[in-house]
Design a protein around this nucleic acid. Structure first.
Length: 491
RNA sequence: GGCGCUAUCGUCUAACGGUUAGGACGGAGCCCUCUCAAGGCUCAAAUACGGGUUCGAUUCCCGUUAGCGCUACCA
């Protein structure tokens, strides 16, 4: 029926890719894919002073990691002529005027005492001749939109998320279209490009909701019907403030999540759940499911809190989702994903071993980076120091630990080194110890009491993957060496 | 200050006038078990406040409060 939508994500390269921006990208992408439309990436780099290459790199790096594609790409800085031309078209129609008031200097107080500022005195009604003369004389000016002041006109539009919106022109200030250096402002450049690129739906943060009235004015001045708008609730910090790089540091940067070992689609999934819901209790959703389920109706109007803490930078739900995705990842794929993290920890990640280790830790890590702490003993030549008290089992003592280790040592010297055989012979050993009693006592040793000293001796800690599989991966030589060391520590 | 937006468990959310207010994360407990996980089960936990409208309000209207946004020659 209607033409497929054209949507755009338009970041400005003035900082790293913000997770709120990432979410805006994702929602645009979902809308485009849901309707077989076109996803446009437009770099809004009109603020020459604040743009940085590092920021641009960060945006592309972040988007690349998210693993979602766009179909067309533009840079506003290469389209300035178009924006200027459109601005002057508005001027020609008498809908904009030159304002020669010098720019307000830096840190001047905002006098919000009585009402809002609407325009600078004397400039709106400068005669066309006077205005042109001063321009020709080289006097700098900003080009301002002439917001209708006569009558009680209101600007209105229908937002896909927030519904019908209306604002009196009397509450809209004469905003700038061109700066005194001739560079278009965000409002001008954005509308000009949305028009020229035939953007049909503008999906962006709610911080633009009130800007939209200005944009509608621009579209109308250019004789065009405004696109459809859909504004997204904002992402907040736990204290209710808007997420900011300044205040909240790395938790707002997409690359932080990548570096911590989030799976991109797990993270996309998490971001989708912030401010949107399929309304049927589904939470873990594949990209396909998200595309199918996405609609503006599912978008909330209330801002959403990213629930990070000072001692834990990641939202627990994001971590949980990531663990879900990790457990759903085939061993071979997961081993490959884990490898860089193992290498980064300074370990030698031999592919065959990675496969074995991955199998044992897949259900024990929530972030890929945790491999370094959870599986270190698989890669280390020598175990880091640990407390010998750890070797002593629950309701046991030093003698019991020693006995268990000595018995284990004996068994492990001869038994076949695969986990079924290891389990059988170590359980047998536990029974034998129990039958004989230990150091004159009639107490029996439970399997748990038998296995804990071995586990600690071999892994250096109590919390570890299943013992027999672990022994198998470690190999006889390493196991015996570590048990010997543990025995020495107990003596 | 002006204008706009918003308000359900700690957090993310469901319930488009009638539900014991549902789910998830996190928390607590139990089960399973060689530890840790994973898995299963159970529990605690919310409609900001005050007025209306209605036989009946989480839901509709108004007010209060609170939060957020915009109010730049930033985007």
């Amino acid at each position: 029926m209607s033409a497929p939508p054209r949507v755009r994500f338009a970041p400005s390269p003035t900082g790293f890719l913000h997770i709120g921006s990432a979410r805006t990208f994702i929602f645009n992408w979902l809308y485009a894919r849901h309707h077989d439309g076109t996803m446009i990436l437009r770099i809004d780099d009109t603020d020459v002073d604040r743009n940085t290459q590092a920021s641009l790199d960060s945006i592309f790096e972040g988007l690349k990691w998210l693993d979602l594609r766009w179909d067309e790409e533009y840079h506003q800085s290469q389209r300035l002529a178009l924006h200027q031309q459109m601005a002057w078209r508005i001027f020609e129609q008498g809908l904009a005027y030159r304002d020669y008031t010098p720019a307000a200097q830096g840190a001047e107080e905002k006098p919000y005492g009585e009402g809002a500022w609407l325009f600078n005195p004397g400039m709106r009604d400068l005669s066309p001749e006077a205005s042109r003369r001063r321009a020709e004389a080289g006097e700098p000016f900003v080009l301002r939109f002439r917001v209708p002041r006569d009558g009680a006109r209101a600007v209105q539009f229908r937002d896909g998320v927030y519904g019908y919106q209306s604002k009196e022109c009397a509450d809209i200030e004469d905003f700038a279209l061109l700066r005194s250096n001739g560079i278009p402002t965000y409002h001008m450049a954005s509308c000009a490009d949305d028009l020229e690129l035939l953007v049909s739906h503008i999906i962006r943060g709610q911080d633009h909701l009130t800007n939209t009235f200005k944009h509608v004015l621009i579209f109308e001045a250019l004789g065009a019907a405004p696109p459809q708008f859909a504004h997204l609730p904002l992402l907040l910090a736990p204290d209710g403030s808007k997420l900011s790089k300044r205040k909240h540091g790395p938790v707002v940067s997409v690359t932080t999540y990548r570096d911590a070992g989030f799976l991109p689609h797990a993270y996309v999934n998490f971001l989708c759940l912030l401010g949107w819901s399929p309304k049927d209790d589904r939470e873990k959703m594949s990209l396909d499911e998200l595309v199918r389920a996405f609609s503006f109706e599912g978008i909330n109007r209330d801002n959403a809190v990213v629930n990070f803490q000072e001692n834990d930078p990641f939202d627990p739900k994001a971590v949980w989702l990531n663990a879900e995705y990790i457990r759903a990842t085939p061993i071979e794929d997961l081993a490959r994903l884990l490898t860089p993290f193992v290498c980064a920890a300074g370990f030698h990640a031999e592919p065959g071993k990675m496969l074995q280790v991955t199998k044992l830790i897949r259900e024990r890590i929530r972030l890929l980076s945790e491999v370094a702490t959870v599986a270190d003993f698989f890669f280390l030549d020598e175990l880091p120091p640990y407390d010998p008290a750890e070797l002593i089992p629950q309701k046991g003592d030093r003698q019991m630990a020693l006995l268990a280790l000595q018995y284990a040592r004996e068994v492990l010297t001869t038994t076949d080194f695969y986990h079924q055989a290891l389990e059988a012979s170590l359980r047998q050993a536990a029974m034998e110890i129990s039958e004989r009693g230990w150091h004159g006592s009639t107490l029996k040793i439970k399997t748990g009491q038998m296995f804990q000293p071995i586990r600690v001796a071999v892994c250096g800690r109590k919390a570890a993957p299943p013992l027999f599989e672990t022994l198998e991966v470690l190999g006889r030589e390493t196991c015996l060496k570590r048990i010997d060391r543990a025995i020495a520590m107990l003596k």
